[in-house]
C-alpha cells in the first residue's frame, strides 16, 4: 500500500533518511520506532508529499506520492500546525473544505471523547489539548492511510487510553495506520508490526507477536537491545 524505494533525504551534510526500502501493507497498525533524529518524521513527511526526497521514491498504491495521494493519506505532524486564528470549529471546517473523506460528525464525536469544546481557540490550547485536537481532526478523515507522528507526546495517561481507543476504532482490513513514537511501551499492545530506524537507516522490521513467541522479547526489549547505550541523536 505504502512503499519507499531507496528513499534518501539529506539536509546539508546530515542524511536524515538513508536509502530506506520499506513496504507497509493495509490491515496493520505499524509502529515506527527510534530515538529522536532517527528519521521517522522525515520519512513520514516525504510519504505525506510535504517534503521532496533527495533521491528515491515513495509509492502509494503503486503511484509516486503527490497531490493525489494527499487526498487519501492523512498526516499528523508532531508540531502544532493549525493557523493561529482558528478555533477548533474552524479547524474542522478547514478539513471539510479540503478533504472529501472528512466527517464533521466523527470530528465532533472525537472532540467529545477527548473532552474538548469546539469553541476553543487553537492559540490558547495547552500542549496536551493541542495533541488531542490534532488526532481528532486527523482521525475524522476516513483516509486509507493515517500517519501519526508522535501521537502520545505531551498527553496524560488517561487521554492516552482514549487515543488508543480511537486508533483501534479506526483500524480496518483496508486501512494502514502508521505511528511513530519513542514511547515504545505505548505502542506495544496496539501495534502489530514495528519498524526500527536508526540514524536514518532501516534496522529491522518485525511482526510483534511473532517476535514475542519466537524470542520471548517485547518490542521494548528489542528497542533496548538496538538502541542500548545510545542516547538521543542530534535532531
Amino acid at each position: 500500500m505504502l512503499r519507499s524505494e531507496e528513499l534518501t533525504k539529506a539536509f546539508g551534510a546530515k542524511t536524515a533518511v538513508d536509502h530506506v526500502n520499506l513496504r507497509l501493507e493495509a490491515g496493520h497498525i505499524c509502529a515506527m520506532l527510534g530515538p529522536n533524529g532517527s528519521g521517522k518524521t522525515t520519512w513520514m513527511k516525504m510519504a505525506a508529499g510535504l517534503c521532496k526526497p533527495t533521491s528515491g521514491t515513495v509509492y502509494f498504491e503503486g503511484e509516486p506520492v503527490g497531490v493525489n495521494s494527499r487526498a487519501s493519506i492523512a498526516y499528523m505532524s508532531t508540531e502544532p500546525y493549525f493557523y493561529t486564528w482558528m478555533t477548533l470549529k474552524d479547524v474542522g471546517r478547514y478539513y471539510g473544505d479540503f478533504f472529501a473523506d472528512y466527517s464533521a460528525e466523527r470530528y465532533r464525536e472525537l472532540l467529545d471523547r477527548f473532552e474538548l469544546e469546539e469553541g476553543l481557540k487553537t492559540k490558547t490550547l495547552s500542549s496536551g489539548m493541542m495533541a488531542k485536537a490534532k488526532i481528532a481532526v486527523t482521525l475524522a478523515r476516513d483516509a486509507k492511510v493515517w500517519m501519526l507522528d508522535e501521537p502520545f507526546n505531551g498527553i496524560d495517561l488517561v487521554a492516552r487510553d482514549r487515543i488508543k481507543e480511537a486508533i483501534i476504532s479506526a483500524a480496518a482490513p483496508d486501512k494502514l495506520l502508521l505511528m511513530s513514537s519513542h514511547l515504545v511501551e505505548e505502542m506495544e499492545s496496539i501495534a502489530d508490526r514495528a519498524v526500527f530506524l536508526r540514524k536514518g537507516k532501516l534496522i529491522k522490521e518485525v511482526d510483534i507477536d511473532t517476535e514475542r513467541a519466537e524470542t520471548g522479547c517485547s518490542i521494548a526489549d528489542e528497542y533496548r537491545r538496538i538502541y542500548g547505550g545510545q542516547e538521543e541523536e542530534d535532531a
Binding site: K164, I168, I190, D209
Partner: peptide
C-alpha cells in the same frame, strides 16, 4: 472483534487471532 480489541486495548488483528 473490534470491541474485544477496545476492551483490552489491543490490535484488532490480535483480537481476531
Amino acid at each position: 472483534g473490534r470491541d474485544l480489541a477496545l476492551q483490552y486495548t489491543i490490535n484488532p488483528n490480535t483480537a481476531a487471532r
